[in-house]
Design a protein around this nucleic acid. Structure first.
Length: 419
DNA sequence: TCTGGGGTCCTAGGACCC
DNA sequence: TCTGGGGTCCTAGGACCC
């Protein structure tokens, strides 16, 4: 059996750990630049605030209903995520961390001496006690069914107590008749629209479709999904997988109109991306830089360009990557063009043990050591404590975060004081 | 005025090679 | 009329996820 454990309203729950007074109040967390809603408490959902909603459209409602809001505090959430995952790992041998707030557990390889749903209920209590984060757990023969079981656990907390087990065909079919196609893992907006048009409304309807139709219209992935829903497992647990791409990009707080300003940002993105790359002990062989205008402006022609560069030698050096990133940028940026978002994507990654020495360049051992030192310092003293001179991170372009909660768990000065 | 960020997989089509 | 065949690699684009 597989289980999917998922933190309830994760970012909001993290904020609530330190603000228990907010426990039954509507709370939301906002994206970078306080742009849109990325996490909602149940009370906020009940008020009709959708996921991803631009904040300015709901300002009135927020004030009227006294909705509490926070700027995203990702270092806090990352820290809580680690704590939750570590707790799970304490009791379960085979886990796949699927996202910041979700983890799959493989119970095919692990025998428990009590029934699985009891085991998972106890796990839930322990996580709540150790971290303060409430979770829901779905258990089923396949990953896709565990996703559905999880949804049921979350949807009917009174009946399920946040844990639901699908262990018979009867329960499986009942769940499939209940779930709408758009809520199935792997069926998004485009596919569900197509399915509804054919009067395919539930998971049960979906598995009645012929394989050939599914393959033709939804690729091999759709076919795998059908198998998973019939109870045949074809998605396995991926315990640790290196990222295949690493990207860093941001929407800016205002439009930028000079190469100089863009250079600073791109250079900082490149350093940050290179740092992520070194963390997973990889090298990259090519980079892609993209820039675009504000797509929400209706009266302007959208501007979008990208530049792809194959590096002469695989590297994880901030200095090298930053250098080529700026070169790529200067090739595509027309001075004066207003840019609202830009970013870098590192691609064609490979583990650094396979370093490929070019005939013309020697491996820069000194630079390698320098990068390690930079990573250590930044880890200890915070991002960009030390950085390349080309991206002076002055206050003027720190993102807007008007309501940032303290970094309770990752910064000494922000630790709660007990009086 | 104000609209997030970081990923994955699959397919089709073109370039290139023997 | 008739124009080789098969493989790989790369890229763009479209779908999806959290």
């Amino acid at each position: 059996m597989f289980a999917l454990l998922d933190c309830n309203n994760f970012y909001v729950s993290c904020e609530r750990v330190f603000r228990p007074d907010l426990n039954s109040k509507p709370v939301i967390v906002l994206s970078n630049n306080d742009g849109c809603v990325i996490s909602r408490s149940n009370e906020a959902k009940a008020l009709g605030i959708p996921m991803g909603a631009p904040i300015f459209e709901y300002r009135e409602l927020i004030e009227k209903e006294n909705v509490e809001y926070f700027s995203a505090n990702f270092s806090l959430y990352g820290d809580f995520s680690r704590r939750v995952m570590n707790t799970v790992a304490n009791f379960c041998a085979n886990i796949e961390i699927y996202s910041i707030d979700e983890v799959f557990i493989d119970f095919y390889k692990q025998q428990t001496n009590i029934p699985l749903d009891v085991f998972c209920s106890e796990l839930r209590e322990t996580i709540l006690q150790w971290t303060g984060i409430p979770v829901s757990i779905g258990i089923a023969p396949t990953k896709a069914l565990a996703k559905i079981a999880n949804r049921i656990a979350k949807k009917f907390p009174d009946k399920t107590n946040h844990v639901y087990l699908i262990d018979t065909d009867e329960k499986r079919l009942k769940a499939l008749r209940w779930i709408k196609v758009e809520d199935i893992w792997g069926i998004g907006r485009q596919y569900s629209r197509k399915l509804y048009r054919m009067n395919i409304n539930t998971g049960y309807d979906f598995i009645q479709l012929p394989d050939s139709w599914i393959h033709k219209h939804m690729t091999i992935q759709g076919l795998r999904l059908k198998k998973e829903l019939t109870g045949i497992s074809c998605l396995t647990l991926d315990e640790v997988v290196d990222k295949k791409n690493i990207s860093v990009g941001r929407t800016f707080e205002k439009e930028l109109k000079t190469l100089q300003e863009l250079n600073e940002r791109i250079s900082a993105f490149a350093s940050k991306a290179a740092e992520k790359l070194r963390k997973q002990q990889s090298l990259c062989s090519s980079i892609l830089i993209y820039i675009h205008s504000n797509f929400h402006k209706k009266n302007e022609v959208p501007f979008y360009r990208q530049s792809y560069i194959t590096l002469p030698i695989q590297t994880a050096s901030s200095i090298e990557i930053s250098k080529y990133a700026k070169f790529a940028l200067q090739k595509i940026y027309p001075e004066g063009q207003a840019i609202k978002k830009a970013g870098i994507i590192l691609t064609n990654l490979l583990p650094n043990k396979y370093i490929n020495l070019s005939l013309f360049e020697e491996f820069k051992e000194k630079e390698h050591i320098l990068m390690n030192v930079i990573d250590d310092i930044n880890k200890r003293y915070g991002d960009f404590s030390i950085h390349l001179a080309s991206h002076e991170p002055s206050l003027k372009w720190r993102t807007l975060q008007q309501k940032l909660s303290p970094r309770y768990t990752t910064r000494w000065s922000d630790i709660l004081k007990v009086k």
